[in-house]
Amino acid sequence: MCRNHSLKTFREGFNKYSILIVLSIIILYALFFVPHFASRINLMAIMFQYSIIAFLALGQMLVVLTGGIDLSQGSLVALTSIIAAVAMSHFGLVPALLLAVIGCTLLGITSGTLVAYTKMPPFIITLGMLGIGRGLAKFIANAKPVPIQDPFFRSLGRKVIFGIPLSVILLLIVCVVLVWFLRNRRLGRYIYAVGSNEESARLSGINTKKVKLFAYSMSALLTSIGGLVWAARLGSGSPIGGANYEMESIAAVIVGGGSLSGGKGSVTGTIAGVLLFGVINSILNLSGISPFWQGAIKGVFILLAVAASQIHSKKNVSMERWAENE
């Protein structure tokens, strides 16, 4: 029962680019065989909807790279939207956006500080922060949705430039910056180093605490951008919105090749992970299959992705052990 042989066949197919291959196949299938998938309306809908999760997933990826986890994202989406909505009617657009981003990021900084400087597990810290974020959002909003009047901000939520939604353009910019940052900045490389071998990173003179603090703060910052996109699209702030978004983002990171033990994950993979779920949901909707299957399919994909990476890494270990005798 407990042999991995049955899964061996996956080994060949799953490598570094497995997620991209799977995604391309599914998209190709959808383009040719799923009616209306290629329609402008449908593609727009996917882009609008999943760009929000994508911002969160990028933030989640940074935290997962350090070997941590951020459960507070969903409630931070709500908090951001509420701060923005409430502040906008009092102080105007720009101060409101700043306040929302700063407020949300402050909670992230708190999580990061606790992760870096205490011995509590990140799971518990961000779980606590999940409650704190949700509570603050409800408190500020008096537990009711807060409509956003600002017409300009609302129009941003639907703005399309050269056929691409503004949020997606923003997302692409963030992706490019993040890829550059992770490849070319010391802090970016250190995020990988800390998650991959913290002790070795520390001995190399890297301030591992600073790196962790940075990752959690960035996660909150990116989440707040996601929250603003969400609020603009919705035209209001909602204290109960964003529930379980953290699970969606974690799922996307994992399916995109990230490892909860740290050190593994990429921007491309993460975005592909988000897209994969988006495309699958869309296919299910358009094919008239009950949307209720979405969760089941998502779950199976998560398991397959993790099982594949597990087997992949096992192979490496055994090769290492054999280096001397072969």
Partner: peptide
């Protein structure tokens, strides 16, 4: 004591990477 997910070159310089004027690696 190396960082497995980084490249050979990156491991050699880890913690003391040469940077450009823009402080990038």
């Amino acid at each position: 004591d190396l960082v497995p997910h980084l490249s050979v070159a990156e491991n050699i310089s880890l913690g003391s990477e040469p940077t450009t004027k823009m402080k990038s690696i």
